[in-house]
Design a protein around this nucleic acid. Structure first.
Lengths: 322, 322
DNA sequence: CTGTTAGCGCCTTCAG
DNA sequence: CTGAAGGCGCTAACAG
């Protein structure tokens, strides 16, 4: 009996006809020796590593963490392993990542970290024809783009505020120019327009995905526009900052100012003011990304995760306006 | 010029004597072709993949996320890549993980997920002599164990409460029998004893790393022991649950009951009651784990991350007792 | 129906 | 000082 037979038994080669006894013997030996095929050799031979890289901005952000949960579940189901890179701490050089992409060590690339991926890495992925999936970010490259129902979410948030009598509704937006920022703006504007309200640029401030940045932006916005009675926060982490910033000025939520954030948080209910949010299918987005990464044919294009529609979760950060 | 020369140029073989012109030519070609060595072949030949697996209980837990940040930073520095497995979503079978361990695809294994790693995986890692690093959990295997200054942290928390006049101080502990639970108990008992206070088992409840579980445990503990005026939460996620549970019963924090949690949270300041915590060197622990994983000699043994001592962060969940 | 062989791409040893 | 060759472990094709 030779190694070839063993290989075919392991890989369930249906064309292989051997006696049940022999197959039994092979299986027995495998189990006796606790044999497992060498993955490097398999990769070398097949040019498929079973590895998918995920590049995140910040592993610490609960929104991304939820995406990761979905990705983890799906990758387990598809028998893939996830290589996680954190662009914030990992540095932009990304030596190991570039080496793995160049060296054929990756089957696919999922990019959450908008601007943080070096062009070298992107160029290599493209030239090696590694399927690339972009999460919520246009990068002007040949890649699949997965989006969330951003417009709808912002619309739901804004509508909820309007339903409570608010007319001066501002936006605490994420970085200017990002795709999902644009789409959430569209939702805000649509809702405002429908209600005959003015959605002017003066009522928006740009923040980031960072509590402190969110707090600063919120403070600046509210001092510039003291007439605002409500804020739609495009980024729930910024909303956390807003919570802090607003209470520091002595204003009360929701009495003086109402808040709705896009994306829910597990601990949204135990915040200084329990935060009303619009939950988005983050988990599903992670799953979808893996499924696309595993699909043999990756039709380049856009897709929106619409398995679960955005859902308003009422808590206590929205009040009725006098 | 042959492939051997190229290999030696890339790997900075100092014994190689070639004309500067030739070296230049090689480098030029590498850059022209955007050449990168095949990682699978390198792995096959060298039996080193540059990959370290990290097994987490829950990627969504901010405490583990902070450990991951440290691990990410260190792995970038050491030119390693991190394979992240989530035992909660990934399932316990862990097919891909077992395959990679058995097939020599991993250089090291870092285990955060206490009980969630199958014995098969553990046995394989041991038999393949893959350096294994345990985070805060004894598993009775040949592996390095990294701990946090758990006893000190619990002691600091308890002392702080005692300083505020509390005498009936309970514990919201994590799962019974876990190493760090035991150590935090030691800290609590030491502080209580030093103050001449009674640290009886009746004042402790066991929770988990889950808000709802923490909330339930807290409710049960406080109805059983209404005399308690303060709680040391061994797990900050349980503390979040406690926040919710306590306010639901109409009691006030800190007026009726004070809370200190071990491990800080980025958003601890914007909670319904800003939470007083004892910050631990989680980031450093992640770094240390990677450094051990990369060390050629892994002296099996215990070590405590003491780069930064536990630090009390006063917020508003602790009040003075009448 | 089973065993042998070649080659995936690299790096190291040895011969030239 | 440089080129050739073998083998890491696997699997697909082919020979027996």
């Amino acid at each position: 009996m030779s190694s070839g037979v063993v290989s075919r038994v392991i890989n369930h080669d249906t064309t292989l006809r051997i006696s049940e006894a022999t197959r039994e013997r092979v299986l027995q030996a495998i189990s006796d020796l606790d044999y497992a095929p060498n993955v490097a050799a398999q990769t070398l031979r097949s040019a498929r590593s079973g590895l998918i890289a995920v590049i995140l901005n910040d592993v610490t952000n609960p929104v991304y963490a939820e995406i990761m949960r979905g990705a983890q579940a799906a990758s387990a189901k598809h028998e893939r392993a996830l290589l996680v890179f954190d662009s914030a701490t990992g540095g932009h050089s990304a030596g190991r990542l570039a080496a793995m992409i160049g060296g054929g060590g990756l089957d696919a690339l999922i990019i959450q970290a908008a601007g943080a991926v070096s062009d070298t890495v992107l160029a290599r992925a493209a030239s090696r024809k590694i399927p690339t999936i972009l999460l919520q970010a246009e990068l002007g490259i040949d890649a699949h783009l997965i989006s969330l129902p951003d417009k709808e979410a912002a619309e739901i948030a804004t509508d909820h505020l309007i339903d409570h009598g608010h007319r001066m509704i501002g936006c605490l937006a994420t970085a200017r120019g990002m795709l999902f920022t644009k789409n959430r703006f569209r939702g805000w504007r649509a809702a405002m327009k429908r209600a005959g309200l003015k959605a002017d640029q003066g009522a928006v401030a740009y923040a980031g995905s960072d509590m402190d940045v969110g707090a600063d932006a919120c403070t600046r916005l509210l001092t510039r526009r003291p007439d605002l009675t409500a804020l739609v926060c495009f980024n729930v982490i910024d909303a956390l900052g807003a919570l802090a910033a607003i209470s520091k000025t002595g204003r009360r939520i929701p009495d003086d100012i109402s808040l709705v954030a896009v994306n829910d948080l597990p601990f949204a209910g135990v915040l200084s003011t329990p935060l009303t949010t619009v939950a988005m299918p983050l988990y599903d987005m992670g799953e979808r990304a893996i499924e696309l990464a595993c699909g043999d044919v990756l039709e380049i294009g856009e897709s929106i995760v619409d398995s679960t529609p955005p859902r308003l979760i009422r808590r206590q950060s929205v009040g009725r306006v006098a």
